[in-house]
Design a protein around this nucleic acid. Structure first.
Length: 561
DNA sequence: AGTCGATGGCTCC
DNA sequence: TGGAGCCCCTCGAC
């Protein structure tokens, strides 16, 4: 076959401009009128190529000559690539592309700015028919059975002020948090690198991170209920670890990848984890849909893996019922949360399958009665089932909330407040949940991502927490089991929130409450003798200044060496 | 200041 | 059922 010349000369270049921007020549205007749908440069090159091929055979094309390349300088929407509108940040407010469904509620016809769910979180939420069913008698009864329940306290004490923090505590983003069950000021944090931090937030500057427990993401941590100095952790490296918090010595209970890396199709990762105290079992679930059981006494794997979700799908959450531990709740990427009876669990034997429209990030029984279920799904909805003894065909309520996340973030999980709420002498146990928000809010000119407290019995937003210093998203949040304290993990940093109303005047020695950890991993090519912490502070402060003119309430300090 | 990379889930074929 | 391509209000390193 004779070789064909595709292009003999580079075609003309025509530049399109916005009519309201710079001047256009009359020739260009004509071209613009002919061009109904402006193309990007790449698309035009493709068209040119097509046209050039036609040149070889088409007489009309020959008469017209080379098709010109059109470089469009018209402003187009970065989301839908169409002209006439733009998506993106205007100052601290994000403008959605109107051609797309609402980013918040996923319905077409409006954008996030005008979404009724943004105006009122409880919009469209049907109040539960028996939401005040828990009566004082029941509470007294419950206290009799469970004397560990704290005394009655005022309603909704929200920890709403950053009390202390460590900026860049971890070297990668925080993935999970856990409060020590008996030492009230100890917070454990896992990160994407597989490390586990043990932080005493009364002694802010004392940083301790165990580095050699896992080789990648720490997905879940649980304290050993019989020995609260031991912590179990499940990781994407396919192992379950048991670590002594005093010594940092770690034991691997199970390794699902004994032959090492054989490619992504066979590498097993562990996500969901919980402990069944009655049976002395550590339960973990993998990314292929299987549940694995480890005997907590012998630290050995027991029995065969059980398929509890769609084969090949990730099981991200496990939770044993706090009152009846034989009831297991699981959730995963097959869009289901499932309830199981541990006494006779096998593939397909679930008691209930709770359907969701998208991946379920988390599913938790309510912490006191274990009767309610709260799930977080990637369709931007929290779902509440008011009673596991009632109708489980559909949730009692769906609350639209922004947590559909970017893949580079830790998945958002709504978590119950483990404490009891009393309002007007009526007990509202298990009604408060906390979850970070993905979409930002314009807060005095700053784009901040609040942490939301939601009354799940009504869908009402009770409080939204933000601080001008925290410009990153806070997907990981944990409420303290006894105190009015919230811990949040945002990017690599840890924050402790306490109620503003309870805050006492700080002593001078406590004023260094926000510390910046040294970034030691990489040198940035600076002169020796420079103080990296100072530059870190400057960088952080300049970032804050960029977002807000409001003076930060707290001051960045360097951790004493 | 701009670019790049890590990398999950969904849709389509 | 599996792979390609697309979606991208991130974050931090370079």
């Amino acid at each position: 076959m004779a070789p064909q010349t595709r292009r003999r000369a580079f075609p003309n270049v025509i530049i399109e401009r916005d009519t309201d921007s710079e001047q256009s020549s009359s020739e260009e205007d004509e071209e613009e009128e002919e061009e109904e749908d402006p193309q990007t440069v790449e698309e035009d090159e493709r068209l040119v190529s097509d046209n050039a091929e036609k040149d070889e055979v088409g007489s009309e094309a020959k008469r017209k000559g080379k098709a010109p390349i059109t470089i469009s300088l018209k402003k187009v929407c970065k989301v839908c690539k169409k002209p006439g509108h733009e998506a993106g940040f205007k100052g601290a407010t994000y403008i959605d592309c109107p051609m797309k469904p609402c980013f918040l509620c996923k319905m077409p016809g409006h954008t996030t700015m005008t979404c009724p769910h943004r105006v009122a979180t409880e919009y469209g939420v049907i109040p539960a028919p028996h939401r005040n069913a828990s009566n004082p008698l029941e509470y007294v009864f419950e206290r009799q059975l469970r004397p560990s329940i704290r005394p009655i306290k005022p309603a909704y004490v929200i920890p709403d002020e950053v009390n202390c923090a460590v900026i860049r505590y971890h070297s990668r983003r925080v993935t999970c948090l856990e409060f020590h069950p008996t030492k009230n000021n100890i917070l454990l944090s896992g990160d994407k690198k597989g490390q586990i931090g043990v932080w005493d937030f009364r002694k802010v500057c004392e940083k301790m991170v165990y580095e050699n427990i896992h080789s990648c993401i720490t997905n879940n941590m649980r304290f050993n209920p019989t020995n609260d100095e031991m912590i179990y952790a499940a990781s994407s490296d396919g192992t379950v670890s048991c670590t002594d918090l005093e010594t940092g010595l770690s034991l691997s209970l199970m390794n699902l990848n004994p032959d090492g890396w054989q490619g992504p199709n066979s590498w097993k990762m562990l996500y969901g984890m919980d402990i069944n105290l009655d049976k002395g079992l550590v339960l973990v679930a993998d990314n292929f849909g299987f549940l694995h059981l480890v005997d907590a006494r012998s630290n050995n794997k027991t029995g065969e893996a059980i398929l509890i979700h769609k084969k090949g799908s990730k099981v991200v959450g496990l939770h044993c019922n706090p009152v009846q531990p034989d009831l297991l709740l699981s959730c995963g990427n097959d869009h289901f949360a499932r309830i199981w009876d541990m006494r006779r669990i096998e593939a397909g034997s679930s008691l209930y399958d709770l359907a969701h429209k998208r991946v379920v990030n988390s599913a938790y029984f309510s912490p006191l009665s274990g009767r309610k279920i709260l799930t977080t799904a990637q369709d931007n909805r929290l779902r509440i089932w008011d009673s596991i003894f009632g109708n489980m065909d559909s949730p009692s309520r769906e609350i639209v909330h922004s947590h559909d996340f970017n893949r580079h973030l830790t998945p958002f999980k709504a978590e119950w407040d483990p404490k009891v709420i009393v309002l007007w002498k009526v007990i509202h146990p298990e009604s408060l949940a906390v979850i970070g928000r993905y979409i930002s809010e314009n807060y005095n000119g700053a784009a901040l991502h609040p942490i939301d407290f939601i009354d799940v019995s009504t869908g009402q937003l009770v409080a939204e927490l933000m601080d001008p210093n925290i410009t990153t998203i806070s997907p990981v949040n944990k409420l303290h089991p006894h105190e009015d304290v919230l811990a949040s993990g945002s990017s690599r940093s840890l924050f402790i929130w306490r109620p503003k109303e309870n805050s006492e005047p700080m002593e001078e020695k406590d004023k260094i409450k926000i510390v910046v950890c040294k970034t030691s991993e990489k040198k940035r090519g600076r002169k020796s003798g420079d103080d990296s912490d100072d530059s870190d502070n400057e960088a952080f402060n300049s970032k804050v200044k960029k977002f807000t003119s409001k003076k930060p309430d707290w001051k960045l300090s360097r951790c004493p060496q």
